[in-house]
Amino acid sequence: MIAIGSGRPFHVAVITPERKVYEGEATFAVVPAWDGEIGILHDHAPLLALLGSGTLRLETSKNGTLRFRVSGGFVQVVENEVAVLSEEATEV
C-alpha cells in the first residue's frame, strides 16, 4: 500500500447529537464535503466546510481503513484536530 502524506497522525472525532461515533488518530481523512471530497492530512490549514452525503474515510495505523456514512453537518479542522459533526453518521 502506498502511504499517503507524511503518515503523521492527527486527531479525529466523529460526533452525532446522540454520541461520539469515533474518536482516535488518523493519518489521512477523506471527507464528503458539500461539493466534493476533501482530503485532510497532518497540519491541514484551519477549515470549516459543510458536508454533503457520502462516505467519510479514515486511514488509521491501528485499525486500518474506517468508513462512515454521513449525511449533512460539517467538518472543522483546527491544529490537527478534525471534528466531523453530522446528524447521521454510522460506521460501515
Binding site: P17, A33, W34, D35, L47, L48, A49, L50, G73
Partner: peptide
C-alpha cells in the same frame, strides 16, 4: 481568531448550521 478556510462561505455555513443548532 482562527483564519478558517470556509467551504462554502462563512454565512452560508452559518445558515446551514443554525437549524442543526436549534434541533440539537
Amino acid at each position: 481568531a482562527i483564519h478558517y478556510l470556509f467551504e462554502p462561505s462563512a454565512d452560508e455555513i452559518l445558515a446551514r448550521v443554525v437549524p442543526l443548532y436549534v434541533r440539537n
